[in-house]
Amino acid sequence: MPLGDDALVLSHRLGEWAGHAPVLEEEVALANIALDLLGQARVLLSLVGDEDELAYLREERAFRNLQLVEQPNGDFAHTIARQLYFSTYQKLLYGQLAAGDSELAGLAAKAVKEVAYHQDHAEQWTLRLGDGTDESHQRMQQACEALWRFTGEMFQPLDGVDIDWRETEATWLASVTAVLQRATLTVPEGPRSGAWAAGAGRQGLHTEPFGRMLAEMQHLHRSHPGATW
């Protein structure tokens, strides 16, 4: 469920970009990524129960997604930094799950192809923004730093996911560092977890914008109890 919530929430955030992207090709790309994630969320949530009940009828405290994915879109640089951090994580995670024999192996085998594309998209844009103009460099640097404090949470061990989390974290850090350096960006130096204990989102402790996001997402479904759509 935590992985399903990650995909569901990030998909929602990317869906907010529709009609607002900086260039038409990005309308297509961001919607494409959002759709892939929504597909993953539906499979993952269905493993636990009814996808719509889980998405629309749980309250904030019952969601187990990372705080990283619930962060508002901000400018395009913030969206790309969030994508870079998260897709690199997903790529490492699904890569290992696909190779294993857990019940998630099948899903992971399909998802790993999608997230490799997402990671490439984020990496390409990180390079362009970091190594583009002075303004884009500054914005990208600022975005990388603003989201850095949410990245530690990704490596809290999860039930049912039997991988070496410390090694995964080290690989993630090496991969992200390499991309940021190629993009002429400085790797942020701040702590990788916020004032809340690391793992807060996984325990149902979220940031303030998340409740508002859920209010919008769930409003219609909750207004018509028991209806089918």
């Binding site: 759709l35 919008e216 409003h219």
Partner: peptide, 17 residues
Amino acid sequence: TRAPSLRRKAILMAKVQ
């Protein structure tokens, strides 16, 4: 962002794309 089911949300996203 307000689609009432995940299936409908996926259809709508695909359409806008």
